[in-house]
Nucleic acid binder design. Structure first.
Length: 293
DNA sequence: CCTTGTGTTCTCCG
DNA sequence: CCGGAGAACACAAG
């Protein structure tokens, strides 16, 4: 479940690894993952270079030469794993030394049965797009389409465009629940089920509360907590609940910071009363009925 | 049965 | 009957 902090972690790491390197080979192992005609995808990528890596919400945008853009969305179970050229005699990826704080949970004997696309660079390093459930995708688009897609997203919460007044406007004249607002990518980009629940708890607001019933101080608290939670999650390199790993195959460290997500029936961190779990828009939602009004 | 991100489709209301 | 909002569904696999 990569959300903004996880996708941002991948973006920052990959920027240092693959920028400006020539792509010498591309393999499509599962056609469903690539949303272009196969020949076009291979033709545009091969011999091209990634000039910059951008992100909007949970979507990665690799800027290529000649005004082409490779979009990559991980959806629920996608991974982008970078592996340097293997020293002779060692299995791919096994040379990485121990000692990191993070725990490796990915079989780095790549490719494996969930590898869908492999991009090879001039130094024989490889970028693997793995995806167990086949929801994720890669797609090459031109500049016009790229801009159109970016415009469809709402405010980026960690940019200067995210102002209290912009945020307040989102709540006006809307009857839907607070959490539905937070999850709506066309309003605010990047929050998913984990961070939406965490932000509601941190702000002390009930996720089921209708948007137009929120008071100004509640909106302000949400505004501040969105930024605080996302920044801390990025510093922790994201949350690994099930499937997520960074581009080195390492887990994120934010799991231990989660106060509500995945903690139904556990005591609330603030008041010690058992956390509740209810469905909201088909999504599991965990909250404290005492601390979140 | 459960898990979730997002695009599409359906329904409701003024 | 139109527009928009919001809810429901579809998808995928383990």
């Amino acid at each position: 479940m990569p959300e903004l902090p996880e996708v941002e972690t991948i973006r920052q790491d990959l920027r240092r690894k693959i920028l400006d390197k020539q792509i010498i080979d591309v393999q499509i192992l599962n056609k469903k993952t690539v949303q272009n005609e196969e020949g076009k995808f291979l033709r545009i990528l091969t011999n091209n270079r990634i000039k910059e890596i951008d992100r909007v919400g949970k979507l990665l945008i690799f800027e290529l030469n000649r005004k082409n853009f490779l979009l990559a969305h991980l959806k629920m179970t996608g991974q982008l794993i970078y592996v340097k050229d293997k020293p002779f005699g060692l299995a791919q990826g096994r040379e990485i030394t121990a000692g990191g704080h993070s725990e490796r949970n990915t079989d780095l004997n790549l490719p494996h049965k969930h590898t869908r696309v492999i991009i090879t660079f001039e130094d024989n390093a490889k970028l693997y797009f793995n995806d167990l459930r086949l929801f994720g995708y890669m797609k090459i688009v031109g500049e016009k389409d790229k801009e159109k897609i970016k415009l469809a997203f709402g405010i980026e919460p960690l940019t200067k465009n995210f102002t209290l007044s912009n945020f307040e406007n989102i709540f006006k004249n809307r009857k839907t629940s607070l959490k539905a607002i937070l999850l709506n990518q066309q309003l605010i980009a990047g929050l998913g089920n984990i961070y939406a629940d965490e932000v509601c708890f941190a702000a002390g607001v009930n996720p089921f509360k209708p948007a137009n019933e929120l008071k100004k101080p509640e909106i302000k608290k949400l505004f501040l907590e969105i930024q605080k939670v996302l920044k801390q999650a990025i510093l922790s390199r994201g949350t690994t609940f099930n499937n997520y790993v960074d581009s080195d195959g390492n887990k994120g460290n934010y799991l231990e910071h989660l106060k509500v997500y995945g903690r139904a029936d556990e005591p609330c961190a603030k008041c010690k009363v058992g956390l509740k779990r209810r469905k909201l828009g088909g999504r599991s939602t965990v909250f404290c009925s005492i601390c979140q009004k």
